[in-house]
């Protein structure tokens, strides 16, 4: 489990810390994938979000759950976040690992991230709809929401079967 993300300005959690927090005591096996062009197209169609790379950073837990790592742009800097899915693809937890913007760091407020818990592929996951916005951090909120919508589509397309 080498560090996948580079060191950012504000590192709230390292990769190892995030994995230990989201899958306490569980063995995680690297299960990263490179999606085929057809899978990328399916993810983009299903989520309405463009995939910047076909690479999916994933780990599989012994109980069938998934730890997914992803990066999105906040306003113009990268935000690194992790998603824990249970064996049926339902979101158990969302954690922010690194945040580089000068403003908008409120996305790490637990109450905002809790809105995603229980969602699965097919949920609307739209800002100002089923996901409430943090005013003043709109871009970070929108891009994390889109990122999660994309990762759930990745799960449904390439990991669920």
């Amino acid at each position: 489990m080498a560090a996948v993300s580079p060191a950012y300005a504000v590192t709230y959690l390292s990769l190892d810390q995030a994995q230990a927090l989201m899958f306490p005591g569980a063995l995680l096996t690297p299960a990263s994938k490179i999606l085929t062009a057809e899978q990328v197209a399916a993810v983009e169609k299903g989520s309405g979000v463009r995939m910047s790379s076909p690479q999916v950073q994933a780990w599989r837990s012994v109980d069938g759950g998934w730890f997914l790592l992803d990066q999105v742009i906040g306003k113009h800097e990268l935000i690194s976040y992790a998603l824990a899915l249970d064996a049926s693809g339902v979101i158990r937890q969302v954690e922010i690992l690194d945040y580089r913007e000068s403003y908008g760091g409120e996305i790490r407020v637990p109450a905002w991230r809790k809105q995603f818990v229980g969602k699965k592929s097919g949920a609307p996951l739209l800002l100002d709809d089923d996901i409430k916005n943090i005013s003043g951090a709109t871009l970070s909120c929108r891009h994390i929401t889109e990122g999660i919508r994309k990762m759930l589509a990745v799960y449904a397309t390439a990991l669920a079967h």
Binding site: A111, I134, G136, A137
Partner: peptide
């Protein structure tokens, strides 16, 4: 000073 601890509230 600002408070944004509840989703949707600022």
């Amino acid at each position: 000073l600002g408070y944004k601890g509840i989703p949707g509230l600022n």
